[in-house]
């Protein structure tokens, strides 16, 4: 097991290097002179030259990459062109907002998804199953921005729960003061994930329920409840864990739309704003941070999958 973790850790190094190369190339893939783009049209020669100097664009590309990587390793991702503040500081201010959102969204997705999936599997081919699966299909196909708007329309503006407009007051440092501040964005983000988890749980449960060892458990005289929760669920959850981990990673990176709709000052909005204003260091920083987190989440998923599913340990 330790061997596996070490090997898996070593494997992440090339992946992370690849990520940094991609992120670094962002600036150079944009057509035209990055400095000119950053400076905007009509900027003076001198301004463009200054920007070029500041971004280190006069150096050769490998040297630029080396500097970028070296700085990144020390936690220095440069400074924002707009605000002039260090990128890490900008991200740090927004990071926990997004993490909080993603965390609660994952909780909602797991909670709703598991219950729906289990009910659906245990009563498969009944009305309950069909309704849940239709609902899940809706959850999957509904675009976040639309569903978010609907929620605002129903709950916040429709006066059912005007307090929920408080999401606007969410502190940039994260960890909202009350659940009302985050419930709507969390639901918006979490429902799609819940649908995926529900479908996954259902198919995984159905597969497991057909296994020989479930019959063995029944032949022992175990009640259906225990068959479902003790014998089937633990096996069925193994593939679901993978999905949950990836969902969380996806929420971190994918909160862009939700944050924009609910005007939340998270990483997603930071990224969008940075793209709109051509603030390259910020874009590079957010993409890098999200990628690194995604890789780490994957690592954790792999390790927990391994712990849960001891059979893989065989070879």
């Amino acid at each position: 097991m330790t061997k596996f973790i070490i090997r898996r850790l070593l494997q992440t190094i090339p992946v992370l290097l690849g990520v940094t190369i991609l992120v670094f190339s962002l600036m150079h893939l944009v057509p035209g002179d990055p400095a000119q783009i950053v400076a905007g049209e009509g900027a003076s020669e001198q301004t463009v030259e200054n920007i070029r100097e500041r971004l280190g664009l006069n150096e050769s590309i490998p040297v630029q990459y080396g500097t970028f990587l070296g700085n990144a390793l020390q936690g220095d991702l440069g400074s924002s062109i707009r605000s002039g503040r260090p990128v890490m500081e900008e991200i740090g201010a927004r990071f926990w907002v997004t993490v909080e959102l993603a965390f609660y969204a994952t909780l909602v997705a797991v909670f709703l998804g598991l219950i729906a999936g289990i009910v659906s599997a245990v009563r498969h081919y009944t009305l309950a199953d069909t309704s849940i699966m239709i609902a899940a299909l809706f959850g999957l196909s509904m675009p976040n921005f639309w569903f978010g708007l609907l929620l605002i329309q129903w709950f916040a503006i429709g006066n059912w729960m005007p307090e929920s407009l408080e999401f606007l007051k969410m502190r940039p440092s994260g960890w909202g003061d009350s659940w009302r501040q985050i419930i709507l964005p969390v639901l918006t983000l979490g429902t799609g994930g819940a649908a995926i988890i529900a479908r996954m749980t259902r198919s995984s449960m159905l597969e497991v329920i057909g296994q020989d060892y479930i019959r063995t458990a029944r032949a022992k005289g175990v009640s259906e409840r225990i068959v479902t929760y003790r014998h089937a669920l633990k096996n069925a959850l193994i593939p679901v864990v993978t999905v949950v981990g990836l969902e969380f990673g996806g929420f971190l990176g994918g909160a862009v739309l939700t944050e924009t709709i609910f005007a939340i000052n998270g990483m997603g909005r930071l990224t969008i704003d940075a793209i709109r204003t051509r603030d390259f260091p910020i874009v590079q920083g957010t993409v890098l941070v999200i990628s690194v987190i995604f890789v780490l989440v994957n690592l954790i998923v792999d390790i927990s999958y391994r712990l849960l599913n001891k059979r893989i340990d065989m070879n």
Partner: peptide, 24 residues
């Protein structure tokens, strides 16, 4: 029936490879 199964009447199956729960 549950009181009977695995108690007074028990059963073994063909596939020993798949008839035991892998996670216990």
């Amino acid at each position: 029936m549950r009181k009977l199964r695995g108690n007074e009447i028990s059963m073994i199956f063909q596939e020993p490879m798949t008839s035991l729960n892998p996670v216990y």
